[in-house]
Design a protein around this nucleic acid. Structure first.
Lengths: 255, 255
DNA sequence: GAGCTAGACTAACCTGTGTTAGCGAAACAT
DNA sequence: ATGTTTCGCTAACACAGGTTAGTCTAGCTC
């Protein structure tokens, strides 16, 4: 396994490269690895007094349950993603988190978190940036569910997943492994399982992508993006430590 | 009009009371009031180099447009809400903001924002808390659109609005004014205008609520909550400066 | 006061997606 | 090896919500 937090750091590197003391602090505040078997719920909805976690390996899902037994999956965290930042701030989890495969997480206590914001503002900004990025994904998810047809939504979902996995080196040449079944995809996209199946067949028939035996193959990336109205998140983001007021001032502060 | 940021501060007060220097800083970093006529777009999708804003009066909506001309409204900011925190962090706006009524905002430059996180960590935490609260609402919105029927979704939407307006003293006794039309409600809920109209009639027929002449009257709050599966956000949130590690340590740091 | 526009409202029809009810294959347990 | 479970897959039917095509009223403009 990779060393503690390296995937998160890799992700943050798209925002800015972290310094040695910052990296050391990140390594220091993380707990021993916590192993979660497939299906284990790490956090329950309504549970108070939350910490934040970093997902080191495996896949999970965060979701909310409805009184009628329905479930809406909010996001599928993959290695290098932060879990429960929001719950930590609100001091109560507004959603549940469950491991979809065997998984490993490290915990960060909220006390460490506040120290981080005070002593390593640059690192704090990187965390804020990660939060904002997650929120932007959440917004895209809302747009999908609210305004895109089932097939557009599904295509969009897999394109996003592809980009996220590429970022951490878990996708290669329009090809990645994906431990989701059609039930959880349905709960994420606001569709029925049956309709997810129909849509996946349509995507196969159109020679756009194939999902078989836990493997995704995207046959026609361009046509998929066209169909989904998908834009890569990187497109709009300017990465430059020097160019931004926010970072520039944080950099001054950290000396 | 109320003094700069007082509504935001009022909202934050649900999280914790701010000290004098913190309040002074908040007042100091805000720009002169910026007046926006109804319909004006303050921020465009994809626009780089964003600041954050505080909405002082009036209503707005933040939304994303789709290639096919569709629109998904993300949220309707009301007085005291922060705008564009995420866009500031990402340095590009992933959504547009438009004034639905004549409105007034104040701007906060990103440089001030970073100073705030460094010098007034407690204030920074309050902003983080506000961000988290908004994100939790976004999640509820996703649940609505993904898993609730049109009538449940609509009921949920107005209950949430009722709670948000109550918090800033803009709702009285199950009664509030609401400058939205059925078109924008449809774009927020992922429905067609026609169906919003049908659903509003159903809610009226069931004697649950009435929306007429820019006024909402909730006739049966309990039945509405029952129908929508609505829980007030305050329910889960424990407000205590002393009880939390996060705040306790931040408090130490600010001396 | 005649036109114009925005917005609420309705009816009739259509369709995308949900529901019910299965089958079959692979993986796992005993 | 024989149930049992899980998961992918399909067909037939039902319905929630979308689409098209209006009407009506209250303001606004000139």
């Amino acid at each position: 396994m990779r060393s503690g937090g390296s995937l998160l750091v890799k992700k943050m590197a798209a925002f800015v490269k972290l310094s040695e003391p910052e990296l050391a602090f990140m390594a220091e505040v993380q707990s021993r690895p916590i192993h979660l078997p497939r299906g284990r719920e790490l956090v329950h909805e309504g549970q108070p007094g939350q910490s934040a976690y970093i997902l080191q390996s495996g896949w999970g899902c965060s979701f909310k349950l409805l009184p009628d037994g329905g479930r809406q999956i909010i996001t599928f965290p993959v290695p290098g993603d932060c879990l429960g930042l929001r719950s930590m701030l609100l001091r109560t989890s507004d959603h549940a988190f469950s491991a979809l495969t065997d998984a490993v997480v490290t915990r960060i206590e909220s006390a460490h978190m506040s120290k981080m914001f005070a002593d390593y503002p640059y690192l704090g900004a990187a965390i804020l940036w990660a939060m904002s990025r997650d929120e932007a994904m959440l917004v895209e998810h809302l747009v999908s569910v609210g305004r895109r047809s089932a097939i557009e939504r599904t295509a969009h979902f897999f394109l996003e997943l592809y980009d996220r996995l590429s970022l951490i080196g878990l996708a290669h040449k329009e090809h990645f492994s994906c431990p989701l079944n059609q039930y959880v995809i349905a709960d994420a996209l606001g569709l029925s399982t049956i309709h997810v199946n129909r849509v996946l067949r349509q995507l196969r028939d159109k020679k756009l992508m194939t999902f078989k035996a836990q493997k995704i193959i995207i046959h026609d990336l361009l046509a998929m993006k066209e169909l989904a109205g998908y834009e890569s998140p990187e497109a709009g983001i300017v990465v430059a430590r020097e160019n931004s007021n926010f970072e520039a001032s944080l950099q001054q502060l950290s000396h």
